[in-house]
Design a protein around this nucleic acid. Structure first.
Lengths: 112, 112
DNA sequence: ACTGCATTTGGTTATTTTGCCAAATAGCCA
DNA sequence: TGGCTATTTGGCAAAATAACCAAATGCAGT
């Protein structure tokens, strides 16, 4: 895979794109949405996305390694919470934007 | 690929995760960073990421279809600009966060 | 109409991601 | 200790993504 070399941003880009990539999957984003409402145990997140436990765990590890969430083990359960305070605001902003686009523009894509 | 069904967010998630996925690639994110500084022609963006023209074009189409950027053809050149006002602020916030993590925490991952 | 430039599209291959199953790990409680 | 539950890891097949080359498209100028 090609790297950025000419760009002045280098590591920034590397780090930030990892965050975006982590958020760029429906299951992971759903879980992050839930975490915006506060801490959740893995079991709750699993119920939310309805995938195999092992799959959920791997999704969570992607989010963890990107620094989007933080895990804490208490007793037998793992609790996850948001580690990136910027996220909820951005999601909210995106939500508004989405509504505007729905109302004003073309349905996001699909044009013959 | 599995869909969200149990989640109350459905289409939101679909749309938003597309945005994140679009931003989740170093080349695309670099270009978006550049676009935060205002409109750019494709040729400029190409120079920035130093990839094959066709590759750049496909990256831009991903961003376009996610609604992150807007294209406008003027004469022989295509100019792209940011379509999502939320983005620059979020990038800035992420940047700050990154600095904090570098200083305070573990280097994002890599622990024996 | 013909030529030249900027960009997009089509096609192919290599790499990465996703999701399941099975097995390993970790913490409680008897 | 042994068993139970919650979660993570390892491994594999299927699907999605990214990069290149070649060919097509669109617009300007001659």
């Amino acid at each position: 895979m090609a790297e950025q070399r000419g760009a002045p941003l280098q590591g920034h880009i590397e780090y930030q794109s990892r965050v975006f990539k982590a958020l760029g999957h429906p299951a992971r984003l759903s879980m992050v949405h839930a975490l915006c409402g506060g801490e959740r145990c893995v079991c709750d997140l699993r119920d939310l996305v309805d995938l195999d436990m092992s799959t959920v765990s791997k999704h969570l590890s992607v989010l963890r390694e990107a620094g989007v969430v933080l895990a804490e083990k208490r007793g037998n359960w793992n609790y996850y919470r948001l580690a990136l305070p910027c996220v909820p605001g951005f999601l909210h902003c995106l939500g508004q934007r989405e509504d505007e686009q729905r109302a004003t523009d073309i349905p996001l894509s699909s044009q013959p």
